[in-house]
């Protein structure tokens, strides 16, 4: 179980005692709030964003209660912990055997990958039954959106089921060959088909003798990097491409996306707030979210170059991610909002 220990100590270490264990929970779960998305960048853990959607509060609480008891971490304020010397030592030892799988990308791909995966699972199941002339089966999902999508997908299809199956098989084989056999194994064994029901991640974990956290991350790494490969090489994966189409604005929360529309039309911040009957603070949250997600977005409209430099300087000299400490270091007229914007940008590099 050393991977579990490695992962959760690593996260405490990354958050430097400045965020609570619920910050970690939201990160792994992939809460689409500005705060969580920002934190993931600020503390350089964005690759773990939404990497464990199934984790529960209770699970996180139990894990950290145990680590506190074992003296691996010290509470510095409510629900916030830093690693003790023993904890740091333990993390270093874990690092000899464990590391995060490569290929995890985080919020830019986690949401998209999730939809890709649901659609793929259903289409493969359906296809596998069709190959055996079975029209009815108990679908692997009961999410209406996914079921509707699959229905349309089969209707739009320009070739027959055999052709589709052959293409899917070929493309998946090429795609998964980019990853380790272990990752491909975890990916494929979850798929259901004719007279063959897929396994849960937990069942696979026990079959390959890894803990479920490591298995989950290996799967996410495989899935997210595969989706990226498809997007970057559309012509090589013409069929798998179809599973990604029509998923848009996956990277912004819905509300931030609306705000972005107004910004593009040239509305100033307070006008957007007025129009949308939201507080200025909420709109600021949206702008920070946009700044993090869209590299093309110009933050200089909100932070003059001079101030930007001052904030940048304060951040690097303090080597902290806590807003208040940065705020104390810079001129009074510089707002928290401006500091957050700079952090959002600086975090990326």
């Amino acid at each position: 179980m050393s991977f579990k220990r490695y992962l959760f100590l690593y996260l405490v270490d990354k958050f430097k005692g400045e965020r609570s264990i619920y910050g970690i929970y939201h990160l792994l779960k992939g809460k689409r709030s500005s705060q969580t998305i920002q934190d993931s960048v600020l503390y350089s853990v964005q690759e773990l964003f939404q990497s464990m959607e199934n984790i529960t509060r209770n699970e996180i609480e139990t894990v950290y209660e145990e680590y506190e008891k074992q003296g691996l971490m010290i509470k510095n304020r409510k629900d916030c912990y830093t690693l003790s010397e023993k904890g740091k030592q333990c993390l270093r030892e874990c690092e000899d055997d464990c590391r995060l799988p490569n290929g995890l990308i985080g919020f830019q791909y986690a949401g998209l990958s999730k939809i890709f995966w649901k659609r793929l699972r259903l289409v493969i199941q359906s296809l596998s039954h069709l190959l055996h002339y079975q029209k009815s089966y108990l679908p692997v999902t009961n999410e209406r959106e996914i079921l509707e999508w699959a229905k349309k997908f089969f209707k739009r299809l320009e070739y027959d089921r055999f052709e589709l199956a052959a293409r899917c098989q070929k493309e998946l084989e090429v795609l998964l060959s980019n990853r380790s056999d272990l990752e491909a194994f975890i990916f494929v064994k979850q798929l259901s088909g004719y007279q063959k029901v897929g396994l849960t991640l937990e069942q696979i974990a026990s079959a390959v003798h890894l803990d479920k956290y490591e298995t989950t991350l290996l799967f996410q790494a495989c899935l997210q990097s595969s989706v990226k490969t498809i997007i970057d090489n559309r012509s090589k994966f013409p069929t798998l491409c179809l599973f990604i189409d029509q998923v848009d604005n996956i990277r912004l929360t819905h509300s931030a996306n609306t705000t972005y529309h107004y910004i593009k039309k040239g509305y100033p911040l307070h006008k957007i707030a007025e129009r949308r009957r939201l507080s200025a603070g909420t709109i600021e949250d949206h702008i920070v979210e946009i700044a993090m997600n869209d590299p093309a977005f110009n933050v200089m409209n909100y932070v003059p170059t001079e101030d930007y430099k001052k904030i940048q300087h304060a951040i690097s000299s303090l080597s902290t991610k806590r807003l208040r400490e940065v705020k104390e270091r810079v001129d009074d007229q510089i707002s928290y909002f401006q500091i957050r914007l700079v952090m959002a940008r600086e975090g990326e590099t």
């Binding site: 494929v188 396994l199 696979i204």
Partner: peptide
């Protein structure tokens, strides 16, 4: 169900 390789499983499915 975990006895065969991922490529085999994929072939069985599709």
């Amino acid at each position: 169900l975990t006895s065969n390789s991922w490529r085999e499983t994929l072939r069985q499915l599709l």
